[in-house]
Design a protein around this nucleic acid. Structure first.
Lengths: 173, 173
DNA sequence: TCCGAATATTTCGATATCGAAATCTTAGCA
DNA sequence: TGCTAAGATTTCGATATCGAAATATTCGGA
């Protein structure tokens, strides 16, 4: 039996048609090429992350929490900031943290400076899991970028970093 | 009252710390710079899309369906391919399509060649909504890339396209 | 100092999503 | 042709997410 639908078009074909359609609908080509490529790549990565995280018995949302806590090293995190960073409602984060606390991955503690706030941090077990996931993910990520030379990767990163540095200026004005 | 938690770090600071942490945990720097940047950018874009889509009374998931149908122009889409492309379970797509059909955005019809399949396509109303959303999104997207010259955008797109062209080779082997 | 507005978190009811099982159809092979 | 395995979609029960309201606390001005 054929795989799916008619035949799933390749990621490259999908990308090219998407750009063409967005441009036809009134988008700027130089913009749509970049934005569409970033979104395509991110969606694909997300699929792989989800698959790999099954081994660690983590959902994509839970991974997001672990990663945020790990990379915010230093500054204490709160449930609402985690919710913002994970693109979910604050009330969802409550439940997510309940589960993760129960499982021993994170720890909640009252903020001594402000009793309306709750600090959230990784437990040792949470840190272990973070390390394991990063190393596992790095394998796939290296594969994805295997088509670029070291120099090209550096160029690519530099260009993306220019964009990132602008993101803050565009926050809700 | 202070904004949130202690103070939300800028996107740039967040990015830099994330890369540093991933590298410390065993990731390759040239890989992590690119991957982290792509993911940061995509997450931020998603936030803006969600905000803008409120005006059109569309959820992010529903937008994903509209966009897939619009950009797959030509080849008829099926529920399962839409589910794959949207990163949701097939059973979720059933409900999503029910709602969107009821609202008049999409149309289901039996595939004449294979009665196990269902074709899904945009209605005229669905196409209108697609156009409106693309033009609205293009405003934000242009802003995001405003820090790059036309030439830099082209370079960036070209590098990303190299990566995209590799994605297919990495499919489930 | 006291009070109202704003912030952080949680609770609660409604909705969306998931994964497994059920149903129907097709493909491939004896 | 007849039979079995596999695909596509939907149904169903369990779980996660959402948005609004509830609760507790803090900030800033009268």
């Amino acid at each position: 039996m054929p795989p799916r639908g008619k035949r799933a078009p390749s990621a490259q074909e999908q990308y090219q048609e998407a750009v063409a359609t967005y441009v036809a609908a009134g988008g700027d080509e130089s913009v749509q090429r970049v934005i569409t490529a970033v979104n395509s790549m991110s969606r694909k990565l997300e699929q792989w992350y989800t698959r790999q995280l099954v081994d660690l018995d983590l959902s994509h949302g839970e991974w997001s929490v672990v990663a945020q806590l790990a990379t915010a090293d230093g500054a204490p995190m709160t449930p609402s900031r985690l919710a913002d960073a994970s693109n979910v409602a604050a009330s969802s984060m409550t439940h997510r943290l309940d589960k993760m606390t129960e499982r021993g991955l994170v720890r909640r503690s009252p903020d001594p400076d402000n009793r309306t706030r709750v600090r959230v941090e990784l437990t040792d077990q949470g840190w272990e899991l973070f390390g394991a996931a990063v190393r596992e993910a790095n394998v796939v990520e290296s594969d994805v970028l295997a088509g670029l030379t070291r120099k090209e990767r550096s160029q690519l990163a530099a260009l993306l970093e220019v964009v990132i540095s602008r993101l803050d200026d565009l926050e809700t004005p």
